[in-house]
């Protein structure tokens, strides 16, 4: 009797393990398929339509029906909006991470932290709607322009990456051993000296990861910025002139680009480029974490 039950348990164990492994394998298959499909469809522009990759990457004229597939305006738009978000949202997010890890009294954290979690949960389309109906008119009134463009997109993205940067940099600071805080304090350092000279440097790789994931979130964001960019497929003249980004241009043009056309292939090339950037960021994170160990 015991022998029978033991073997049945053993069989269950093997079946369970097989199912669990199969589910795990789905992750591997999924990312491989995504890379494969995007690589094939994202390079048709070059191999099938014989548009040179340089003309795609550095061309400044975008006219899908007219045979011009220069994506530089969108690449610049994406990079500028993301760069703005990192310059504003990065330091602000790290500062708030420091606040939660080192300063916030328990009672304040109990109120502020759920607020930050709600901020993560707000859908990007709602951020876009807020940008469109609240931020753009406000910017327009202040600057006497239409208000849309890279500045508006940068501000929206800054807010959207905050929760990511805050929570990850807070985590990075929390794992810094308390012995370092005490060591610094015992040498007569003020709290700010301890934070700026010991804790932040000690948590630097974790903070780098926080910022990189912020970049990843910003560069892939679509609707929130599409609603505030003004959507002009030209190189932006200023932060306040209408512009476009890789993501927003895809969503605008995809419905119009005919099946099998170079126009459509160019949009997939832009998506493939976004995917490559995302993969590069993942590798960057791996490098940042390796430095730590």
């Amino acid at each position: 009797m015991v022998g029978f039950r033991a073997s049945r348990a053993h069989r269950d164990e093997r079946i369970a393990l097989a199912i669990l492994m199969a589910c795990s394998a789905i992750f591997v298959v999924a990312i491989a398929l995504i890379l494969g499909f995007l690589a094939i469809n994202g390079t048709k522009l070059f191999f099938q339509d014989h548009v040179s990759p340089l003309a795609f990457l550095f061309g400044t004229t975008w006219d899908g029906f007219g045979g011009h597939y220069g994506a530089l305006p969108f690449i610049v738009g994406s990079l500028v909006a993301t760069g703005f978000a990192i310059l504003v949202g990065g330091p602000l997010g790290v500062a708030i991470g420091v606040f939660f890890s080192e300063l916030a009294p328990a009672r304040i954290a109990a109120v502020f932290k759920p607020a930050i979690e709600v901020l993560v949960g707000i859908p990007s389309i709602v951020y876009g709607w807020l940008g469109l109906t609240l931020l753009v008119p406000a910017l327009g009134a202040i600057t006497h322009t239409n208000g849309d463009g890279l500045l508006a997109a940068g501000i929206v993205l800054s807010i959207m990456i905050l929760p990511t940067v805050i929570s990850l940099s807070e985590d990075a600071l929390r794992v810094v051993p308390n012995a370092l805080r005490e060591g610094s304090a015992s040498l007569g350092a003020t709290r700010w000296e301890t934070i700026s000279r010991v804790l932040v440097p000690a948590a630097s790789s974790g903070i780098a990861v926080a910022v990189i994931l912020g970049i990843a979130r910003a560069i892939g964001e679509t609707l929130a910025i599409q609603l505030v960019l003004g959507n002009a497929p030209v190189l932006p003249k200023s932060l306040l002139s209408p512009a476009s980004a890789l993501t927003s241009e895809i969503i605008i043009d995809m419905g119009d680009a005919p099946d099998g056309s170079p126009f459509r292939h160019a949009l997939f090339s832009m998506a493939f480029l976004l995917l490559l950037i995302a993969m590069a960021l993942i590798i960057l994170i791996r490098l940042a974490l390796r430095k730590r160990t």
Partner: peptide, 11 residues
């Protein structure tokens, strides 16, 4: 000044 139980050099 203070020296702790476990060495705590800064990284």
């Amino acid at each position: 000044g203070m020296v702790f139980q476990r060495p705590n050099p800064f990284p």
